[in-house]
Design a protein around this nucleic acid. Structure first.
Lengths: 344, 344
DNA sequence: GTGAAAGCGCTAACAC
DNA sequence: GTGTTAGCGCTTTCAC
């Protein structure tokens, strides 16, 4: 157990504790020779500042709170989402001597607001990174804002409040995917929407329509099926779409789970992918590369977003009032086996 | 922002700060009427103890550190593993006003030891929960032990050191799975081993052999194929095993990824599961219920293990010297579609 | 450039 | 049962 305190270091180096503090915190106004002396003492004693003492005195906690929807409510599929968020936030923390506090929470719970307030008042993180879909819920955003804790929202690019936001461009990337399908010669491209409560899903649908327009392809309600984000619903929607007289040659699903359902449906109907049907998803969940054929999809830069958000918080001088505007980090098309040229 | 301090509460309640402290910490020796008065003041001022101050004074951090192998090295598949560990640890923390610090680390890195020491000396968690496979690596265990921080290891049931351990019974549960397959009439049950560096994998193989013995079935090297934990290797192994003149009617893989590979191989070879071949895996990853046919597998109680380990740490009075022995939490067979009666 | 002293908000002896 | 008094180890004025 490290027992060296700042006093021990000061004594060994023959300086005052304030000077040690200056060295530790990389402040100005320390003569180089003094700095070295202190550094040596620090190394020699294997001194590490006590976080609690530092926090108490500085009124900062050196903690970032990462708040996201409780995946245990959903079941494990969203694990990849959470892990990637954590990875990004951890990266930021590692470079800045911060620690990461994770706080899954269930927005369906009546008392989330109180729960988050309690978290903040107890652990006093220097900032909160709030992931989607929570970042779009006024109830949650307001609860955090009320505590005056700097907040960064991770969003999917639809219109947001005045808080600083790190966004990705769901809509634009879906347009791009649609254009990509069109460029493969597909003229009948269907879309499977998801549960409408998630804003992200809506903007994906809008992106699909944008893409059609940009490719001079007509939009038809017949080519839109409503799923509920589950792979079962994707399967049902696919069966319906493929039963049309003029069946689509490409199906773009608003998430990978539903796209996987489409693949399963095609399998049952003996439709070859990508020979007779191209399939695209969204999210790039790990399943996407595990199924056969592997899924063309869209990859959101979740880790990078969380990292940037955390960094903004860490570098943020004061109370967060200065954090404004937004940063957009583009999503990326991942082309795999499930898409190919349109059948003739 | 909560600004009320213990002094404010004391003043409002007309008592000393020590009395407030007693109430907050649920200590004895406070008259009921006093307690109520204090409670009211607390509620009224919305008072929350300042964690840093409390930690500084009490020499406890009210933090539990969860240390596990860095999944970003592996890629996302182990996300479910991490998430379940976190869930369990978070449950324990929630009931006891603790917070959870997560610390993925890469054991292939030369400096892991130093990295963990730094973590411990900085954040000073009151205890560390160390997940497998790190929990079986002397380098890592020793680095943590050297800091005198209470440590609980999560293990898969092979022989362990003297530290308190929360275990699951990999070997016994694999024997059980093998007996289950035998009870379905299978007489030629093959096994696909994984990367031998993981102890857990070895004990699974031993369990398989136990199960054969207990079912009066002969063990044959011909029915053992060596994979490397990846689904691709599972596929290769399956192709080899199924090419045998006396091909197995059941294949038990040491993890779900490889079992999924077996399913894929059978698909290509046009072998019906479970009609002609039964397949079992281990881990119960989410993929196991997503593929068709869904996979019979073994579910480790990871969340429960992490929860118990965290609770032990939280309730542990002092320096961890008292934490000894082990707790065993049994794994569970999950019977799904991929296993059935042996073909006649 | 450097240091002395006064807290940060709490817990832990030890009175009373 | 309750209060008093010291610290815990650091940062922050503000002197020098």
């Amino acid at each position: 157990m490290s027992k060296a305190t700042i006093d021990d270091v000061a004594k060994l180096a023959g300086v005052s504790i304030k000077t040690v503090s200056r060295v530790v915190n990389r402040e100005q106004n320390v003569r180089e020779s003094t700095r070295e002396k202190v550094q040596q003492a620090i190394t020699h004693l294997n001194y590490r500042p006590n976080i609690s003492a530092r926090n108490l005195a500085s009124l900062r906690s050196h903690l970032i709170g990462l708040v996201y929807d409780d995946p245990s409510a959903y079941e494990i599929p969203s694990a990849g989402y959470v892990i990637r968020l954590q990875q990004g936030a951890l990266r930021a923390c590692a470079t800045a001597d911060y620690e990461l506090l994770i706080h899954p929470c269930n927005y369906r719970n009546r008392h989330v607001g109180a729960e988050l307030k309690a978290l903040i008042e107890q652990a006093r993180p220097d900032g909160i990174v709030l992931a989607a879909p929570l970042s779009n819920m006024p109830k949650i955003v307001n609860a955090i804002s009320a505590t005056n804790t700097p907040l960064v929202r991770l969003s999917t690019g639809e219109k947001t409040g005045k808080k600083y936001t790190v966004e990705t461009n769901d809509r634009e990337s879906c347009a791009e995917m649609t254009r990509y399908l069109a460029s493969l010669g597909h003229e009948r491209i269907a879309f499977i929407t998801g549960h409408p409560s998630h804003k992200a899903i809506k903007s994906r649908f809008l992106g699909y329509q944008d893409g059609l327009r940009q490719s001079d392809l007509p939009f038809s309600e017949d080519f839109v099926a409503a799923g509920d984000n589950s792979s079962g619903s994707g399967e049902d929607c696919a069966i319906k779409l493929l039963a049309l007289e003029q069946a689509p040659t490409a199906i773009f699903a608003a998430n990978d789970d539903m796209a996987a359902g489409v693949v399963r449906a095609a399998d049952k109907l003996n439709i070859d992918i990508p020979g007779q049907l191209s399939v695209a998803g969204f999210d790039n969940i790990s399943l996407a590369q595990q199924i056969y054929p592997s899924l063309t999809t869209i990859h959101q830069p979740l880790a990078a977003m969380a990292e940037r958000a955390s960094m903004a918080l860490i570098n943020n001088p004061g109370n967060g009032a200065t954090l404004q505007g937004k940063d957009v980090m583009p999503a990326k098309l991942v082309i795999r086996e499930s898409t190919g040229p349109a059948p003739r």
